[in-house]
Design a protein around this nucleic acid. Sequence first.
RNA 1: UGGCCUAUGGUGUAACUGGUAACACGUCAGUUUUUGGUACUGAAGAGUCUAGGUUCGAGACCUAGUGGGCCAACCA
Length: 668
Amino acid sequence: MSTETKSLNFLEHIIEEDLANGLAKDKLRFRFPPEPNGYLHIGHTKAIGISFGLGEKYNAPVNLRFDDTNPAKEEQEYVDAIKEDVSWLGYKWAEERYSSDYFQELYDWAILLIKDGKAYIDSQSSQAMAEQKGTPTQPGVDGPYRNRTVEENLDIFAKMKAGECNEGEHILRAKIDMQHVNMLMRDPIMYRVLKKDHHRTGSDWCIYPMYDWTHGESDYIEQVSHSLCSLEFKPHRELYDWFKEQVHGFAKDKYPMQPKQREFARLNLSYTIMSKRKLLKLVEEGIVSGWNDPRMPTISGLRRRGYTPQSIRKFVETVGVAKRDNLIDVSLLEFCIREDLNKKADRVMAVLDPIKVVITNYPEDKEEWLEAENNQEDASAGFRKVPFSRELYIEKEDFKVEASNKFFRLKLGGEVRLKNAYIIKAESVVKDTEGNVTEINCTYSEDTEKKVKGTLHWVSIKHAIKAEVREYDRLFTDEAPDSHADKDFMEFINPKSLKTIEAFVEPSLADAKIGEQFQFQRLGYFNLDIESTANKLVFNKTVGLKDSWAKVKPKTATDNQQKQPQNNKRSAIDQIKSYGKKYDRMQDDQREKAKAEIQELAKNVSYEDLESLFGTAVKKAGTRIITMISLGVLIENGLEKNEAINDFISKALDDKNDLLVAEAKALA
RNA sequence: UGGCCUAUGGUGUAACUGGUAACACGUCAGUUUUUGGUACUGAAGAGUCUAGGUUCGAGACCUAGUGGGCCAACCA
């Protein structure tokens, strides 16, 4: 039954292989290592899901480690927020650790490294050091302090630690190789002087270790078996291993296992950004109301917006993990939250854009409390009462004076069901001086068994509560606002990402609790925002319902930004080649179209491009056919036949593929 | 004039040591429905960036090319 074995991702393959090669299962250990310099976002969720997910899968401990080596940027506030977010997602860490826990051990090892002649004090300006470092295409050169004596190095390093040196005066670097192809191996910095108080160690230290020196050794101290990080750290792996081997030489008895760093592609989500720095800018410039603005891709923003931990975990699980760059469509995230809320959220009625309906044959002073099912997906959700009376609101969009029979809603002379109530018929309308409908007069029928095409949601005007509803649109107008070399992401800010609506909701919502989630029937999922008060209800729209009616309706201009097939940025010859792959398998009419397309493309192809295809293997008939077609175009445009061409044609004439023969005959 | 990583339907991920491309989202159609939602059924959509090679057989292995990404902070 549920024995279906899910295929493994590449990280699981690595772990399985290590296990098969003798790694004991109880030695597996992972970690999630955020720097406490900002709030966690949906991108981190992937990293969290991978490491904690592996922990759950293999029943291995996962540490939450704060990578707190830069007191200039880090704060306790962020530590607290990160812990809250990870817990909220439902993950439990084995131990809460801090890189700063290891400052002393790191320092001791650094001294051993100096004694081994593997590290030295450099006393140049950062600029001078940068110049000596070279570039990715040019090797670096050794600096003047590279061969200081061990004694001098030890002496200065002690002074640095004692606070006797100013920032920028001296740094400690590893002595590796200034000519190394990997820039990170060109004597990387291990320690700098930073006269700043640390949120945990206070003023104990005035030298702080750099990332590369700290991170790997923290993994090592914690005996993490697999240290998983994103792709941009791939070049760091070589240095990670170098440091690890040095330190292992000092401490193999205490710490027997050497961790292994592996890298995966980070998550990118369409129409948003994932950089902490850029998110901070949105906050600082007031584009959003804070880190937890419901439009933000932060975990706290998503939480406030109404996303559930389950939906986010499901999302991370479905996007998977690999090493190629990706851009995931927000529709997948939306699918995950809809799927979750469909089962959990009670249904209620709310009208966001009202128009008045008067039931003329319903007594003026009468009111009824009708029974309504809370959630048809969940029998245990029970029922509630909703009030019905003579005057109601329905959505403006749900009424048209005249409409085709594809319009299942209310039209003059037509009948429609009011959800949980009666069937009504529109008899006449009241219009204002400009001709806009302001009121619809209807009659009702108590026969609720009747078949009618549409069902509308509604609220009784007398009983309805006014509420503020906030509807959100994507924060950016560009699919990947982050990825334009020539444009700043701020240029793509969507000015209409927030829409505030005055809505009318059914009275049962009066005692909704902060964060509680509802489906406003036929509209979408909403939750009660933290800014809501007893006097003023405020709802966030989490996500709309899937709306297949919207697709039938004539589209607005903004919806119509159709995606261009991306192959038009490929060169003509490449496009022709891709036709070659399938040409001989196409059906006749498709093939004719393809041929016309190839002939058009061939006008932009050089003979040299084509000639390189003359040697194509005999079995690849399609490629040779498209080559022949393109050649025909070039010849028509004045290309002289040469030996290579004649040879190519005569070989084709003898081929067993009829299509190829036909094309060749045309040129012979 | 470098090094490393990467390339599979529109998107994301699969395909165990080579055996003829699967799953999810999205799209389209139908059935059910007191939500144009949900559920259910079905369909279309890639021959795996290009070329060459190894092989009886290549998405997978090798070579070259092309496209994309990463690498020069006293950041992580």
